[in-house]
Computed example of a mutant assay.
Amino acid sequence: MARPILTLDNAMVRYDRLTAVDNVSLELRRGETLGLIGESGCGKSSIARAIVGLQPLSEGTLAVEGETLKDASRQHRLILQRRIQLLFQDPVASLSPRLTVRALLSEPLKIRNAFTAENWGRIMRLAERIGLGEQLLSRYPHQLSGGQARRVALIRVLAAEPSIVVADEPTAGLDISVQGDLLNLLRGLKDHLGLSYLLISHNLNVVGRVADRVAVMYLGRIVESGPTAALFRGPAHPYTQALLSANLTLDPSRRHERIVLSGELPSPAHPPAGCRFHSRCPLVQPICAAEAPALRAGEDGRAVACHFPLAARPAVIPQTIAG
């Protein structure tokens, strides 16, 4: 098993009185893609912001390549943090409208005082590899398509020579064919450059296609994790099963009855006691409201936080996983 390149241990992220991430532990292994899924507001983006240094951890530790960031010197911490780069969900918004593509691609090198002929040549080879022609260098962000803007944003990320890329909804708003091209590109770059990805997405078909493992979040906590194929084929947590049942599929033979959860999503500022899912769980028992279940490791790398985990039963399986 590959050793972790990034470890998040008992992490908590608070905003005033709101605890967005509550005692979360994650491992990203070298060369793998870890998918992070869950409803909006469950804490996925807060984890991403904490990992890339945009939001400090309230508690817990973050380690990169075995080194804990808070124990490193300021200079060394910056070096470690630079190895993690964020691919923003909205690429156009992340690009300055006043700069051409050429200026946008050279900016990360200039910030690091690393703008040399050799490094610029590396950037241009990357641009050629991902299909960003030289004719686009004189354009501004508003003159780019969604796919082109994502390619520019991706090259800016790679200009820092990261070992970890946090991709926040990388295919959002793209046509299906463009999504496929981008996913193939990300997989090719992972192998070519030795990258590890943390992939945050609502698109379960995307996660099923590219993720090696998946972690499922609900109200700030991880409720289930495991290898993608095993988790999608047989979810052990009732929330995971309901989440996967809502997945869209065009193949009638793969459709399953959707599980509609009762009740409203509780406020993250006032989560329920005990299991946070118990107020919506169709299998709730008295212990669920009184005692929070621990995330327990099981077979085949699976882990689930549930007092009464489901027996393996199929959910709606993305077409790239099923078969």
Rank of each mutant, 00 (worst) to 15 (best):
S267Q: 08
P268Q: 04
P268H: 01
P268C: 07
P268A: 07
P268Y: 03
A269Y: 06
A269L: 15
A269Q: 13
A269G: 11
A269S: 15
A269N: 08
P271F: 12
P271C: 09
P271G: 08
P271Q: 12
P271H: 06
P272K: 01
P272E: 14
A273K: 14
A273P: 09
A273N: 12
A273C: 09
A273Q: 14
A273S: 15
G274V: 03
G274S: 08
G274E: 07
G274Q: 06
C275A: 03
C275H: 00
R276E: 06
R276N: 07
R276D: 11
F277Q: 01
F277R: 00
H278Q: 10
H278N: 06
S279M: 07
S279Q: 13
S279E: 12
R280M: 11
R280L: 13
R280Q: 13
C281D: 07
C281G: 09
C281I: 04
C281N: 03
P282M: 04
P282H: 02
P282R: 01
P282I: 01
L283Q: 14
V284Y: 00
V284P: 01
Q285H: 12
Q285K: 15
P286Q: 09
P286S: 10
P286A: 12
I287C: 02
I287V: 15
I287Y: 00
C288V: 04
C288L: 03
A289Y: 00
A289P: 05
A289L: 02
A290R: 14
A290N: 10
A290T: 09
A290G: 08
E291W: 05
E291I: 15
E291L: 14
A292R: 12
A292P: 11
A292N: 06
A292Y: 03
P293W: 01
P293C: 08
A294C: 12
A294E: 15
A294P: 08
L295Q: 05
L295Y: 03
L295F: 05
L295D: 07
L295M: 06
R296V: 15
R296T: 15
G298V: 01
G298K: 00
G298W: 02
G298H: 07
E299D: 15
E299W: 02
E299Y: 02
D300A: 14
D300I: 02
D300S: 14
D300Y: 06
D300Q: 13
G301N: 10
G301I: 05
G301F: 05
G301C: 07
R302P: 02
R302C: 06
R302G: 05
R302W: 10
A303G: 04
A303L: 01
A303R: 02
A303W: 00
A303D: 04
V304A: 02
V304F: 00
A305E: 02
A305Y: 01
A305M: 04
C306Q: 02
C306H: 01
C306S: 08
C306I: 00
H307W: 14
F308K: 04
F308D: 11
L310A: 10
L310H: 03
A311P: 10
A311I: 07
A311F: 08
A311H: 14
A311Q: 14
A312K: 10
R313K: 13
